[in-house]
């Protein structure tokens, strides 16, 4: 049963040109173990699948704690190191506040919607 939990799909990835558009399956991004697995899936896109342009669509996400922010920063750094780019879009107003309070909106590229995200690369 635990194996099923860890293998559960957490991301939906759609390729639009050379941009990987990533949607989160979960409405709540919580719990260290879950965040670790989401992080692993995101890093795999860069490290193993060679994606260089990632657009994370937060449209489905209703709640997210600070534990997830570390993964986004690491992902941002990974992409920077290979001349890639990370863009975040469709973030609910309350969650956007999380990025503003932590001032991560200054280092991460955040745009209102997916259309704007596709044009941000």
């Amino acid at each position: 049963m635990a194996g099923e939990t860890t293998r559960r799909r957490r991301l939906e990835v759609e390729d639009i040109g050379d941009i990987a558009v990533v949607n989160f399956v979960d409405k709540k991004i919580l719990d260290e173990q879950n965040i670790q697995l989401i992080g692993d899936d995101l890093f795999r896109l860069v490290d193993e699948l060679g994606r260089r342009k990632l657009l994370l669509n937060f449209g489905n996400v209703e709640f997210m704690s600070s534990a997830a922010l570390g993964k986004l920063i690491t992902l941002h750094r990974k992409l920077q190191a290979v001349q890639g780019k990370l863009v975040l879009c469709n973030i609910a107003k309350d969650i956007l506040e999380v990025f503003k309070i932590t001032k991560l909106d200054r280092i991460l590229t955040i745009v209102p919607d997916e259309q704007a995200g596709l044009q941000a690369f």
């Binding site: 993964k71 920063i73 309070i101 932590t102």
Partner: peptide
């Protein structure tokens, strides 16, 4: 510290 991966709970 902005790019450190942890330590934001108290701030939030």
């Amino acid at each position: 510290n902005l790019e450190r991966p942890c330590g934001r709970g108290l701030l939030l």
